[in-house]
Write a protein that binds this DNA or RNA. Structure first.
Lengths: 206, 206
DNA sequence: ATATTATGAATGAACGTTCATTCATAATAA
DNA sequence: TTATTATGAATGAACGTTCATTCATAATAT
């Protein structure tokens, strides 16, 4: 089966098994022993590739963010109209979440790492999402997108998809491709247009 | 402090300490011993009030959902215009999240309990949110709200607030009350109006 | 006195991590 | 080619720690 080479993709096997187990059991109920079994290696082997448990999880987190960001921007074309650019990214996100169910379930787990890790993760993710930043910036300038900070726009642009994908994968709800279109439209409605002017009675914002 | 009383609210103290620790350390790094110390009781005492660790967490989860639902609907008035009803609920959610930071951080942890628990949690939550269900239903009928399933509307109505509140509490972003108004408006824009008809083909937006 | 409630030392299972050992392959020598 | 040696990836039993849970005992209430 497995010879004794250096090892190009054994690390990958460990990653893969970690994702699988983390998605299934969460951080509790996830043990190194179980991981070794799932990955088809000895427990000690894991420590040849990762300093310790924490290191493994941090590295995995980084890779997942990278993959997610990369998938989100696949085929991105800054020449297209803003709305189309946005729709494309949203579709990418949905697609990625559905096709990588383990990652989708994992990802949410990472939202509860220590605060300092979260902060660096946050800024790292934004680094990769530069094109989305530009899209938002351009949208704000041309009044096609509400004049709100990136993070707030994100809360309508990415979070709902993550949530819905999780529920979809758990069979709690079902989203077909026609609904997805409507969802993407709804999410565009949330961020589109200059910040609405009259909430209740109040003053225009500008 | 009190040596050996019957115990009306010792259970509450244990709940409270659990929330605190869970918010701080997550499921890992949360131990019964630590919990006992934080709650000011002996380890054995915990087992007088809860069958075991799992039972404690499940019960806590249920109570948090109940509190959350109750807070969301506080002061709800079905007589008001739909948009105002909606804004009021959104504001309640934000308020609750900010005022109960430990619960907000905890809540997300529970998103990764076993699937069957998640499903029952989901339907239990909806039971309590009947008024919101009605609001959505009425909105769909009168074309004031998009013709989309409740769960999808929720993804723009609750999830973004949970996400933003978490980030706000972690000091990753800051949301002031003026921004909150805009966020609530944006979230209304997401669900408002009949499901948009032209995705790409483009009519004027208003 | 009796029942109820609280305690925390004791327990054993499970955990992450280590390290002496193995062995297929690579490198070198004949 | 064939024999010999060196390598380091892989192993998994063993280790020390930590954990959830129990229970004999103590404290309090009735």
């Amino acid at each position: 089966m497995s010879p004794a080479k250096p090892s190009p993709d054994k690390r990958e096997a460990i990653f893969c098994a970690t994702i699988k187990l983390l998605a299934k059991y969460g951080f509790h109920g996830f043990s190194i022993k179980q991981l070794a079994e799932e990955a088809g290696v000895a427990t000690g082997t894991i420590y040849l590739y990762f300093k310790d448990r924490e290191d493994l999880i941090r590295e995995l987190n980084t890779q997942i963010i990278n993959d997610f960001v990369k998938a989100s921007l696949e085929g991105h074309d800054p020449q297209l109209p803003l709305k189309q650019q946005y729709q494309h990214i949203c579709f990418n996100i949905w697609q990625f979440c559905i096709e990588n169910s383990c990652i989708t379930h994992c990802k949410a787990q990472f939202d509860h790492l220590p605060p300092d890790v979260l902060r660096s993760q946050h800024s790292h993710a934004w680094d990769g999402l530069q094109p989305l930043k530009h899209l938002f910036e351009q949208g704000r300038k041309t009044q096609k997108i509400k004049n709100l900070p990136d993070d707030i726009l994100i809360s309508f642009s990415i979070e709902p998809y993550l949530y819905l994908a999780r529920q979809h994968l758990l069979d709690i709800i079902k989203v077909d491709s026609e609904q997805l279109t409507h969802i993407i439209d709804a999410s565009w409605d949330a961020i589109a247009g200059p910040a609405s002017k009259n909430t209740n009675g109040q003053f225009p914002q500008e």
